[in-house]
């Protein structure tokens, strides 16, 4: 049976509402899970979740646009976030950034054509003494060097 994109989104969200509740404070956990499942929080998903939680879509958009981890743009399976704040910058984040761009063939803000990797800037992750710091999805890497980049990427390339 053919299921439309909207129906699928709605099913997914209804499941998440069952898991997290239908109160306003369930919004962020629902959005986080939805992002993990779908890689992107679509316009329709924002309206549908608003309807399920009895709030308005503008509120959902306010939240989604506030948190950089909740993206309205389509993102790859693995989202790489490199810290750009001062400590990591001084520890050599620029070289790491160039290596990432070279290895993946994309610039920051882009996703590889195969939809596997996205490259994003992030602000402080709270490990300033161990910079440059980098997140791949929810895994933290510290003291990243250009040499290590290849290793890290390879470990993800082999995953599904």
């Amino acid at each position: 049976m053919l299921i439309s994109q909207h129906e699928q989104t709605l099913d997914q969200l209804q499941g998440l509402v069952e898991k997290h509740g239908d109160q306003r404070n369930a919004l962020i956990p629902i959005l986080q899970d939805f992002r993990d499942q779908s890689g992107q929080i679509t316009d329709y998903a924002m309206q549908a979740v608003a309807n399920l939680l009895k709030i308005e879509p503008s509120e959902v958009y306010g939240v989604v646009s506030f948190y950089s981890f909740l993206s309205e743009r389509p993102q790859g399976n693995f989202v790489i976030r490199l810290c750009r704040t001062i400590s990591c910058d001084m520890a050599g984040k620029q070289a790491v950034a160039r290596q990432l761009e070279n290895d993946l063939g994309i610039t920051f803000g882009e996703t590889t054509k195969d939809g596997r990797f996205s490259l994003e800037w992030a602000n402080c992750m709270g490990v300033c003494d161990q910079g440059p710091a980098m997140l791949v999805n929810e895994t933290l890497y510290t003291k990243v060097s250009p040499e290590k980049v290849g290793e890290i990427l390879d470990s993800f390339k082999s995953r599904a």
Partner: peptide, 10 residues
């Protein structure tokens, strides 16, 4: 209670 306007971004 219309909520047409909202703070957007950070």
């Amino acid at each position: 209670e219309v909520k047409a306007l909202e703070n957007v971004g950070r």
